[in-house]
């Protein structure tokens, strides 16, 4: 038996909306520690890792580890039916190939029950080591989204360079070139407005912009984004979900032929 209650159905809806273009099917692994999902996009260039800790839920019960394979577009269709301030309860047991989403209005006057068919998904589960990165940049998530979208109109790839003074994003295309330089900014009223650059050694890597633009669909989930880079390693783009977990996106760098 699995049962979990979230104060805001809208949170899960937003999470699924932010990843469902990248991955259409995925398996949620449920255990006493929470709900986890790890999946690669169909071209195996990027990977999404979602972690929702059990202590971030209002109620969380998982008698034993349990896998729930879901089509994320179908899940999104159901989550869209939740009211803005509805609570969400998820229920599933191993006897049925279904997960139930219960949406309850704040005054308890409306209770909607949606049952989603579960599916068997065969996927590779990858071990992601907790690596030390050469550079870690935290910046407002809206700023990162603007940068990748702006550069996406110029070129297909972005070259990210981190030095101790700044982080540069550069793109080139048929119409010309663009460089956006962000300096460290610590003296802000709100901590989420900061741009923080931690550099062990300078890095310079190139990534496909369309994936980064896709990752930035998660912008509404967190005011700040953390970008972790090491030479010849996948970049990590992390959105922390306050009090419950994170969504991390991994993207392999472009390698020169």
């Amino acid at each position: 038996m699995f049962e979990a209650q979230m104060a805001q159905a809208a949170l899960l809806k937003q999470i699924i909306e932010s990843i469902r273009e990248l991955i259409t099917e995925a398996t949620f692994e449920v255990s006493g520690t929470g709900m986890m999902l790890q999946a690669m996009d169909s071209s195996h260039v990027s990977l999404v890792a979602l972690n929702l800790r059990s202590d971030g839920f209002q109620l969380f019960r998982a008698d034993r580890p349990f896998s729930m394979g879901m089509n994320l577009n179908h899940m999104a269709k159901m989550l869209k039916c939740a009211g803005k301030d509805d609570t969400l309860t998820m229920r599933a047991d191993e006897a049925n190939d279904l997960v139930t989403f219960l949406f309850e209005s704040p005054g308890n006057e409306r209770l909607a029950e949606f049952e989603l068919k579960l599916m068997d998904i065969t996927s590779e589960n990858l071990g992601i080591p907790d690596a030390e990165y050469s550079a870690t940049v935290s910046m407002p998530s809206a700023e990162f989204q603007r940068i990748v979208k702006d550069l996406g109109s110029i070129g297909d790839t972005v070259e990210i360079t981190v030095t101790k003074d700044d982080v540069r994003f550069a793109a080139s295309g048929d119409i010309g070139n663009a460089t956006i330089k962000c300096r460290q900014l610590l003296d802000t009223e709100k901590p989420e407005d900061r741009t923080l650059i931690e550099m062990v050694e300078p890095v310079n890597l190139t990534f496909a912009l369309r994936y980064l633009i896709n990752f930035s669909k998660a912008t509404s989930l967190a005011p700040s984004v953390t970008i972790k880079l090491s030479t010849e390693m996948p970049v990590v783009v992390e959105y922390k979900l306050s009090d419950i977990g994170y969504v991390r996106f991994y993207l392999a760098p472009k390698i020169e032929d």
């Binding site: 195996h44 260039v45 990027s46 990977l47 590779e124 990858l126 071990g127 080591p129 390693m233 032929d257």
Partner: peptide, 14 residues
């Protein structure tokens, strides 16, 4: 895609 390695090649299989 050309010049674009498989993400799985960076991680260990479980």
């Amino acid at each position: 895609p050309a010049g674009q390695p498989n993400i799985a090649s960076f991680f260990t299989k479980r």
